[in-house]
């Protein structure tokens, strides 16, 4: 279903609930996996994904179609992830800066995570990156998103994104070969 058709269903009071249901079903996996790769833990990803759709529901009437629905939803999901990680750092008792060891331990111990040693090591290497660089890397490497689309979501230039991605790859390879 086209985004315009989805939006017209949501904006019609008679079909609003149906339209919302279609929207959630259409975007839930992309939102969830985008979030999950950032926060690692399933329960946190579940909370944030739900919160993203609640925010979309509350703000959809203000959505102007000068941006694509997909971009707008990803932008909300991205903001929620970054806010969550910042809050987590502030709540952290022992360190205001570093949540990487906690997330890294989760990669080793969570029953919701599998994969062989090198794939776990790749995920741990990603945790060494700054949040925004990790976001860019995830969208480019795992989601195969074009730079132009990432640029729309993150409001960053394509050139800056390319540089960020190449730096990220270099850091990850250095970590993997340590």
């Amino acid at each position: 279903m086209e985004d315009s058709e989805l939006l017209s269903k949501i904006r019609n009071p008679d079909t609003r609930n149906y339209g919302i249901n279609l929207l959630v079903r259409a975007y839930q996996q992309r939102v969830y996996w985008h979030v999950r790769k950032m926060v690692i833990d399933h329960d946190d990803a579940d909370d944030i994904t739900q919160e993203v759709f609640i925010k979309i529901h509350n703000a959809i009437d203000r959505f102007r179609e000068d941006a694509r629905l997909f971009t707008w939803i990803y932008r909300i999901a991205t903001n929620e992830c970054l806010n969550f990680l910042n809050k987590k750092r502030k709540r952290s008792f022992f360190s205001v800066e570093d949540i990487e060891p906690e997330l890294s331990a989760r990669i080793d111990n969570s029953p919701d995570i599998d994969g062989d040693e090198i794939q776990r090591k790749l995920q741990k290497a990603l945790l060494k990156l700054p949040d925004k660089q990790r976001l860019v890397f995830n969208m480019k490497y795992f989601e195969d998103m074009p730079y132009e689309q990432i640029a729309e979501i993150t409001s960053t230039s394509v050139g800056a994104l390319k540089a960020s991605y190449h730096h990220a790859v270099k850091k990850i390879e250095d970590f993997i070969n340590e």
Partner: peptide, 14 residues
Amino acid sequence: RKLEDIPKKSIFKV
């Protein structure tokens, strides 16, 4: 080891 040597696979489950 290069990044492209690592199979691209999600390790997260739901």
